[in-house]
Every structure is written in C-alpha cells, then in structure tokens.
Nucleic acid binder design. Structure first.
Lengths: 346, 346
DNA sequence: CTGTTAGCGCGTTCAC
DNA sequence: GTGAACGCGCTAACAG
C-alpha cells in the first residue's frame, strides 16, 4: 500500500520517512541521541555528534517541530493584530518578529479588526496550535475568549492602553490618555484655542478611546468647549484626513488647530491645506500621532506624538519569554515612554 | 508527580488534560466520534452530535491542530517576507492573511531581507512546522534552500519577478521589467529627456533589478544616455528619497524627471522640492511606484505605477490551495496586470 | 555518555 | 452509526 515501485522486500524503502529514527539508524545510534544532538549537543560526545550532524546535513533532515511541541517543547508564539496597512502596526510586528527569531521562536499571525465573534474565532484558531505564549493588540473583549486564554495556560501580553480595565495577564504599552492629554496641552501652550480632534473609529478600540478621553480631559481643564462637535471620525487613509479637515474647518470657521490620532490622517490633511493654499500652521495647525518615517520629512515637518512601536513589539515578546523562562517576577505592566515632537506644523 | 494537590486516587483528576479523549469520556462515546463531529459532522447522528458539541463548548475545548497536522491534515502556510515598514509588503501580507483565514488556514510568518544564510535559516525554521504550503517573496537564492523546499513536498509560490530564472514551482507577480519600461516610456512621451532612476538597494532583489533593467532598456531604445550616473541607491525612507533628489539634481543640472522605485521615496522627494520652492513638475517631474494610499492625496498628486499588492497576496494563497485541493492544472505563472497612473507630479 | 520505555492528541484502519 | 487499537515524530525520565 505504501509504495508499489520496489520489490516487496522489507529493506531500504527509498521513501523511508525522514525522522530522528531514520537518522539514528543511518548513523547507528539511538533516536534519543539524535534528539540530544539537536537540543543538548553538550550531552553527546563530539565524535558521535559530528557523525549525526553530518548525516542530518546530508539527508536534508529538518526536525519536526510539531512533534516537539506535542511533547511540551513548543517554540511558537501566536499573535493577533489589526490591519497592517497605514496603521503603524507594521513596525510592531517587525519588532515582535525580530525578537522572536533571535530567540528561536516562530510567529503565528492572525489579523483583523474585531467584532467579538471574529476576535474569539481568531484566538481559538491560534490556540489550536498550542502556542507557548500569546500577544494581543488590545484588550480582549469577549468573555469566552478570556476564559479560553486563561485555561490555555499560555502567558498573554496585551499591547494596549496601560490604564483602565484589568489586564488578562501582562500589558505593554503607553498611556494613550497621557499622550493625548499632553499633546492637547502642548497645543494650548503654543496659543491655540480652538482645538479639534480627528480619529479613526474608536468603537471597540480602547487605545483610541483613551486618546479621545485624554484630549477631552485637557480641553475641560483648559476651559475650552467641545460639545462633541469638535470631533470627527474617519477611515484611516490620507483621504480621510483631508476630509476631516474640510468638515471641521467648515463647521467651525475659527478652529485654529487639529489633533489627528494618526500621522497618516495628519499627512492627508496637510496635503489638503497645500491644495487650498492654506498656510500650516498659519491658517491652521496640524498635529499627528505616531511619528512615522515621513513625519520629519514632511513639508512642513509634522508635530506629533512619538511612541516607539518597534520597541513595544520587542518588549512584548521579551516579557513573554522571561515568563516562560521561569522568571516569576516579570512585571505585569510595562509602560513605554513617549515624546511630544515639536516641529513646524503646529 | 503530575499534581500533588489531590489524593493519590486515580479518579477524576481535576486537571485532566483536555482532548477528544476526555470529551468522549464525558459524553460517553468513543474519541473517534468526537473527532468526526469536528471534521465530518454528517457522519454522526444529530443527537450524538449535539451532545458532543455541547460538551466541547462547555469544556472550552480547542482541538489540537498540531496533532491533526502530524496526521497529515495540516492547515498552516509558511511565508517569508521582507521588512514590512514602508515597503508596501504590508498589503500583500494582509491579502495573504485574509485569504488564509477565509479558507481556514493559519499563517506562519518569518521576516528578513536576506543573505543566503539567513534566507536558508528562515526557510528551514518554517519547514520544521511542516506547513502544507510555502509563499516566498522573491526567488530563492540558496541552492540548499531550494533542495529543502523541493524535498519537503510542499507546493511553493514565489511572489516575484515574472520573467527570468526558472521558478521553483509557481510564481505570482508582475513583470517589473515591463512596469519600469512602461513608466520610463511614459515619462519620455510627456517630453522629459533627462530621466533619473532611484531605488533602494537592488542587490539580491530580483524585482528591483528588473525594474532597473526595464528603465535602462527604455533609455537605450530612446537613445538617452546613462553611464550609471543617472542612478542612485538609497534606503527605503522618505529621507532617502529627499537625498536622492539632491544628489541627482546637483550631479545633473539639466535633469528633468526622476523615476523612484517606490512611492515612499517619491513622496520624500516631493517634500524636498517644496522645501526648496521647486515646482513639481515644473522644475522637476517625480514618478513613483506602488500607488500607496497617499499617492492620490499628495500635493501634487503622484504619477506612479499601480500594482495590486493586496490581490497578489490573495492570489498566491489561492494558487497554493488550488494545488492542495488536487487541481492538477493550476497555472505555474500568474501575471497580474499593472497600470501607469498619470497624475500631476510628472 | 548512551540506550530503553512510554506516551503526547489525534486520525485511521477495520471490525462490530 | 459507532468503537478498539495502532502509529505519526519526538522527548522526559529513568536505566545501564
């Protein structure tokens, strides 16, 4: 049944499946020895080791990590992220990926901006692979998902808002409230008195919610007015930013500054200003969030909130690995700093 | 040894590991029945099925895909991609991811721009997970890696240059040669006579190599000169684009157009022009590649080459799945179209 | 240092 | 429609 090409003899099937077993047979040692060469080379005598390694090389043998994982030696980290396009998430993924590979782990990726059901499904799928740890890009919404995560026993890092809801396990992030509060105050300090706020849809996104809250907290403290009419939600595209600018400036003739919750939006708005011949910040000041690569090069250079997304990704993985390494006093919450980068656009 | 908390009695360990076995026991059926409920529900009587599903739900059981994979029922696709930042690759990843999840597959991601050794290592790691298929973002360089891939038996899609080296298996992509040739001709047709070319480092990147070749082929056909001094390589950042603009314009006072191999670079160059008060395209024309979201919103709107990266990602996965589904006459090469988007910057 | 034994969770015969 | 037994590739634990 297996292969009809050779005689029925039981010797030397040409297609014998490659495994530690087969390698062991070829070298004349026990499978366990091969396994040790792979994971604890020091426990094997140099000569044996050399012979085994050579056989492995020559056979093109790649150890089966599925089997290792089943025996409790998993090296996979599962992660679910929002859409990569325009969002700055790409840098986080890069950071996670770099850190993972440097430590010999692989990264399983699931994507989507989530309804509770979709989030739950993604998490369920990931958990099916029995990852040794999970990294999520926001607080988990669904109760079922939280239960699943907990009972999986895998450590979890949420990259999210630092304050607020009780984390499932560990959190890495910045206080979005603080950043937005700080930027709003910064704009006020520079003399702007009518400050608008533009973001992508906040529903179900605790980071954006906190930014909006921070903005409003600052306004309240300053005694500035906002009956909700200083805020707009748009899709995360340059066009969205341009449209928000139009909406807000036509709604409020005297608006003098707009704080965008994403550099992508801010860049779009600046282009719209050029198109209309409006001076930035003369006619209207523009501030962004994220400090993307383009921000410093933009004309005029963009005032923005700098958060080190790449580092956030790395940290998340590092915390996970520390916990896995048995480090019992890994911090539950890691708050990365941020910076208000004051350039010319505001 | 397993758990010291309960009495030594052999009944009802509270932490009995959850598997089909355990679910089966709770419902009072055989493990196989549970398995069938999961994969071939129709083979089980409705009442039994309902009971099983309920037990699964209530226990929070997530089937172990590692085990399924070991039995030849894998649902994982491995992929190695260049850095996500600024590169437009994010859209491809999004496309792959969407298509994967819609079809019930998971995506294992490895990253890096590659030396041969790094590429080989990444591929080896991925193959360790026994993916049912692999998607690579360029032609595989290393002979060893090619051998590994081949002997793994997994179908492979290279997202790459369409023409040139013989593909390992399947290819999805555009002809970068054609696109660059077309854009260069387009610029010439609009009257530009001194056309420069800027790209990120082409070494080891067949797509960029083909773009440069296409550009040069067009120049030659047009009778335009380029002794290599009309070309510059810079990092893939907005700043890189700005610097390339400066380099090229100071080297050639009469240069009248620059074709950037990436929109990111072109956007940076346009900002530099604003800074210098140069009219675009009056003083110098700028063309990009990729048609990123910002391109259409840029001031002035960017003339660029549009390739549907998201769709490329989806197609790659679809080809893989078609092959896996037993479709024997899956095309080996899929060439997606492209479009010269003529806007105002050139 | 090396070999032996047992079993991870599931799918797959092949009987009933 | 259902169940029992075996094996996938690897490795922890214990001998030798």
């Amino acid at each position: 049944m297996t292969d009809g090409s050779e005689d029925g003899a039981d010797e030397k099937k040409p297609t014998a499946r490659l495994g530690v077993r087969e390698i062991a047979k070829r070298v004349g040692v026990a499978p366990m020895t091969v396994s040790r060469v792979l994971s604890n080379p020091d426990m094997v005598s140099p000569e044996t080791r050399a012979k085994v390694l050579q056989a492995i090389e020559q056979a093109g043998f790649v150890p089966n990590r599925l089997a290792s994982s089943m025996r409790g030696n998993g090296r996979m980290i599962g992660t679910v992220v929002p859409p990569l396009i325009n969002s700055g998430i790409a840098e986080q993924v890069q950071g996670m990926s770099d850190e993972c590979h440097e430590s010999g782990y692989s990264m399983l990726l699931a994507q989507g901006e989530f309804t509770q059901e979709a989030e739950e499904k993604a998490i369920r799928t990931l958990l099916g692979w029995r990852p040794v740890g999970m990294i999520l890009q926001s607080f988990v919404q669904s109760e079922t998902a939280r239960a699943l995560l907990t009972s999986s026993g895998a450590p979890v890092v949420e990259i999210s808002e630092i304050k607020g809801r009780k984390p499932l396990d560990m959190v890495v992030g910045v206080s979005n409230f603080e950043t937005a509060y700080a930027m709003t105050m910064h704009l006020a300090a520079k003399g702007y008195k009518r400050i608008g706020f533009v973001s992508t849809p906040v529903h179900g996104n605790d980071r954006l919610q906190q930014r909006r809250t921070g903005y409003n907290a600052a306004l309240a403290e300053l005694g500035f007015k906002n009956r909700g009419d200083m805020e707009v939600e748009v899709p995360i595209t340059a066009q969205g930013g341009a449209e928000a600018l139009v909406t807000l400036t036509s709604r409020h003739k005297d608006i003098d500054a707009i704080f965008f919750s994403s550099d992508t939006l801010a860049v779009g708005a600046v282009q719209e200003c050029h198109r209309r011949g409006w001076a930035v910040p003369g006619r209207i000041a523009i501030a962004g969030y994220g400090d993307i690569d383009l921000a410093a090069q933009l004309f005029p250079p963009l005032t923005t909130v700098k958060v080190n997304r790449y580092e956030m990704g790395r940290r998340a993985v590092r915390q996970l690995l520390a916990r896995l390494g048995g480090d019992t006093k890994v911090p539950t919450i890691t708050s990365l700093g941020f910076e208000i980068v004051d350039r010319d656009s505001a």
